[in-house]
Nucleic acid binder design. Structure first.
Length: 779
DNA sequence: GAGCACTGC
């Protein structure tokens, strides 16, 4: 038998039904039965007798316990052996045989494992020894929802396998590909694998794909799961493992056509749960009270308190600190806030030790961490013994009617509550104080948080699915199908942007748009920008819009911060202001001190620069010219006008008109909105485009730029088919303009063109003047 | 005259 042929068999051992009666080890020609192996390994090689897809747990373990690392032929290190001993004690290790049995006989396996089971590090290694991807030029992928997890788990596994990180084991995340030709086990973010699928729809580089943390139900994981169902129909050599925490296991199993399920217990300590006897009317006050109470009466051990946002957290920290300092008979405390926008240095402080007692035999000191949801999944703090759970978190919601995503403080789910309480039992038995009644937990909390796909604007998702070749979205097998209206909104958006034609098919423009890792609107303006001679500038603006706010505003230095910002302010709007800041930052030599002096966030600017580099790469790959108009600093001069026109090509649906009353109305939905107070726009602009609709006590539009009605009609004539628009002054202005244009073109035939144009300019001006006077009067 | 839960490409 030729080597090539046996290799083919080895990749897809189940293809030959006639050999099914034989024990697995005899099914592969060139396998153990014939005393050979398919890859020409020397007979004394540790893997010489391995048969792909038919190995045993004992074989794998023996190879791990040998003298030489079979993957790089180097002797195992001392450190390796030490780590190996620890790995053997992980709960998942007892299930190696069971797991191999399942994965060898099924294409999809669901694996349920609680924290501390070792599934994320061990399961991929079990598969490596069974799949031997290295010897067939394939890889095993293991996805994580978060970058940090992908990196740190890869690092850990590289150590466990005694290889250099980035060689046999690596990770791949945005901005950082730490893999090589040799890499056969690759941790990566779920978004990264999805992006790869857009260019390789069958994910042919992989022999196995492990979707970890599937219970998180991120947008990317959800799409990947749907995609896996499609791919396995076409690739029977692909193995899929879906790993999740306990609660949803049945749902995953059902979704994957009753794939077998394996459960692995975790290794955590028991946590006692306490409920309040009556509902709390003020959770914040109750939370602070509980923290102080624990501090006064309970044994040593740190406290973790979950709240919903920055302001609430800083407030609570101050109050807890002030009150506990006044307790005469309690130990000292350190109180730390924790949320994602906190600078990394401040975030690291949560790992400091609790303070020592004031006197050698005094009450113990205590650390109290007050955190958002970030401590529920992304960050773990060892040493937490007491958890306080008020039962709320801020969650994203999408309202397709007004096409707005917003953040809402909402009750958490049972799954979240369990996750939170589990944080108390990582190092020893703990206690969790739930600030709601047991009845509320049982009857009012939903089982699991709604997956992101049900709470998001799906513009990007639909574009990605189309690019993945999924034409029929209605019949795509979503684990939780989004509301039809939400899908409609997305299709409509993409159609107006020109990404989909009227039949819903991806256009060439849409295919290019999907390549860019930004919102469809921003992708559109990037692609259009060379036509307006300003792709360099649009790349900068898009990058700045893809990072958190750069402007710092410390509560005690607001005035100075505002003055610093005023230096960059552009009279025609915030997009141009962002451009100014970026330029100033680059001119400063990317200087950290400059950022500090000018109240700009250094990290944010740095990451905007990173994003810009990436966008530039994509622009070049798509053959889009990188150009700028000659600079002139006149606000309405051609340089800035070109940029504003290019912005309009992506934002024409996010446009508001200033009515005579002085307030703005969104043109499509007639929502009354106000310019966000942070806006730099310094005059009453009749038409503005906006980046973001912020829904709080008021409706704000944030990051706005003045545009002209003419541009709107120029860039999106199809969109401004005004019959479908609600009545408002803005609509009437556009109608007039359209009329004028029509009569303009017909009168041209009759030779009245010039006169007509003059007339229309005049009436246009007087309209605007009147509006402006009106709005001034109101103020 | 005011906020930004958390991720990700």
């Amino acid at each position: 038998m030729s080597e090539a042929k046996s290799q083919k068999r080895a990749e897809a051992p189940k293809e030959n039904p006639y050999l099914a009666h034989l024990p697995p080890s005899e099914r592969l020609v060139g396998g153990a039965a014939s005393g050979k192996n398919p890859y020409g390994l020397a007979p004394n090689h540790p893997l010489a007798n391995f048969v792909i897809g038919a190995t045993t747990a004992e074989q794998g373990e023996a190879a791990e316990e040998g003298d030489v690392n079979p993957f790089n032929n180097k002797p195992f290190s001392e450190k390796y052996r030490k780590i190996l001993a620890g790995r053997r004690k992980l709960p998942v290790n007892k299930h190696r045989k069971e797991f191999l049995n399942l994965i060898q006989n099924n294409q999809v396996v669901i694996l349920v494992g609680e924290t501390g089971s070792g599934k994320t590090t061990q399961i991929p290694q079990f598969m490596v020894f069974d799949e031997l991807p290295a010897f067939k030029g394939k890889k095993i992928a293991c996805t994580q929802p978060r970058r940090l997890a992908a990196m740190s788990v890869a690092q850990r596994v590289a150590e466990e396998m005694d290889v250099v990180m980035g060689q046999e084991v690596g990770y791949n995340i945005r901005f950082e590909d730490c893999t090589s030709e040799k890499t056969f086990l690759q941790y990566m973010t779920d978004g990264m694998l999805l992006r790869e699928a857009m260019n390789d729809p069958l994910l042919s580089r992989y022999s196995a794909i492990i979707l970890d943390e599937a219970h998180d139900r991120t947008l990317s994981t959800d799409i990947l799961m749907g995609l896996m169902k499609e791919i396995i129909k076409k690739r029977d050599d692909l193995k899929v493992v879906v790993m999740s925490a306990t609660l949803d296991a049945g749902k995953f199993q059902k979704y994957f056509d009753n794939a077998p399920l394996m459960s692995v217990p975790g290794r955590t300590f028991p946590v006692e749960i306490y409920y309040t006897p009556e509902p709390e009317s003020d959770y914040l006050e109750a939370a602070i009270f509980t923290a102080l109470q624990i501090h006064r009466t309970e044994d040593a051990g740190d406290i973790l308190l979950f709240l919903t946002g920055e302001e609430e957290i800083e407030d609570a920290c101050r109050k807890i600190k002030a009150e506990s300092d006044q307790m005469p008979d309690a130990g000292p405390v350190k109180v730390f806030p924790l949320y994602s926008t906190l600078p990394p240095q401040a975030q690291k402080r949560i790992y400091e030790d609790a303070p020592p007692p004031k006197t050698p035999d005094g009450r113990p000191g205590r650390k109290i961490v007050v955190s958002t949801n970030i401590a529920e999944t992304s960050l773990t703090i060892d040493g937490i013994v007491y958890v306080i759970d008020p039962g709320f978190s801020k969650q994203k919601v999408y309202n397709p009617r007004i096409r707005v995503e917003s953040l809402l403080v909402s009750p958490i789910s049972k799954a979240s509550a369990q996750q939170r309480s589990g944080r108390a039992g990582r190092t020893r038995p703990g206690k969790c104080f739930r600030l709601y009644t047991e009845n509320a937990f049982m009857k009012e909390l939903i089982e699991t948080t709604y997956p992101e796909i049900l709470r998001s604007n799906l513009g990007t998702v639909v574009l990605q699915l189309k690019k993945l070749g999924i034409d029929d979205l209605v019949h795509f097998d979503f684990m939780d199908p989004p509301a039809p209206e939400t899908l409609m909104r997305a299709l409509e958006l993409l159609n107006y942007l020109g990404a989909l034609d009227d039949d819903g098919n991806l256009t060439p423009l849409g295919a290019t748009m999907a390549d860019f890792p930004v919102d469809p609107q921003l992708a559109k303006m990037l692609i259009a920008s060379p036509q307006y001679g300003c792709s360099n500038e649009i790349m900068t603006i898009v990058s700045m819009l893809n990072v958190p706010l750069v402007f710092l505003r410390p509560p005690d230095q607001r005035k100075m911060a505002d003055e610093a910002k005023a230096q960059f302010a552009h009279p025609d709007g915030d997009h141009l202001t962002l451009l100014n800041v970026y330029h100033a930052y680059k001119t400063s030599g990317e200087d950290q001190k400059w950022c500090y002096d000018n109240f700009c966030n250094f990290r944010t600017l740095k990451s905007a620069d990173n994003v810009r580099t990436q966008l530039k790469r994509y622009m070049e790959r798509c053959d889009l010219d990188l150009v700028s108009l000659p600079f002139d600093d006149k606000p309405k001069g051609p340089y800035y006008t070109g940029i504003r026109k290019a912005l309009t090509t992506g934002y024409f649906m996010q446009v508001a008109h200033q009515e005579r009353s002085g307030s703005y109305l969104t043109v499509k939905d007639n929502q009354v909105v106000r310019l966000h107070p942070s806006s730099c726009l310094d005059h009453a602009a009749e038409w503005v485009i906006y980046n973001e609709f912020v829904l709080t006590n008021q409706n704000y539009i944030r990051t706005v730029t003045e545009v002209k009605a003419e541009w709107l009609l120029d860039v999106a004539p199809n969109y401004f088919d005004l019959d479908s628009f609600p009545n408002c002054e803005g609509k009437r202005v556009l109608e007039k303009l359209i009329m004028r244009r029509k009569s303009g073109s017909s009168s041209r035939e009759r030779g009245y063109e010039e006169e007509d144009r003059k007339k229309s300019r005049k009436s246009d001006r007087s309209d605007r003047d009147r509006d402006r006077k009106d709005s001034k009067r109101r103020r």
